[in-house]
Amino acid sequence: MKKVQVNTADKNYKFELWRSNGDLFIKRNGSQHKADIVRLNNNRYSLIIGGRSHEIGVEHLPDGYAISHGARSENFRVEDYELAKIKKAAGISDTQAVKNVAAPMPGLIVDIQCAIGDEVTKGQSLLVMEAMKMENDIKSPLSGKIKAINISPRESVDKGRVLVEFE
């Protein structure tokens, strides 16, 4: 039997997994289910848990998995439960807090609506980017103080370029 903790950006789930008579079982909060997982093609899997049938997509990330179910996708990191406990006791956090805003797509910076030193709130518009024939508000993913702005208006940026950094 194996105990694992599955982490998202802000949540964690604890599971126990084991095999018995060739079948795979998973347990959470006292309820246990038989699980069967079969690869279909590429990154698609058929998953039957407790008799309920699902199709999921799996992408391997450097530190975990991107799981898509239906049209949604979430990133997960799986770690050994005992190790997670030790880490927590030792005060080690490996949830890397977001400290910057990267360009979600290639485009043109149209307007910058914040300045270095500004205290901004989560969801506030930081800048306007033009991409795919549209102007898009780039919103702050967190509340905090702006440390650096790495771009200027009318500048073209590639996807992933760090636009704004937080303290």
Partner: peptide, 20 residues
């Protein structure tokens, strides 16, 4: 925000994939 049961299912899938 995805409903909690959907998040839990995806987390379970991640655990199963990782286990195997």
């Amino acid at each position: 925000m995805p409903p909690e049961e959907e998040m839990e299912l995806s987390a379970m899938a991640a655990a199963l994939i990782d286990y195997r």
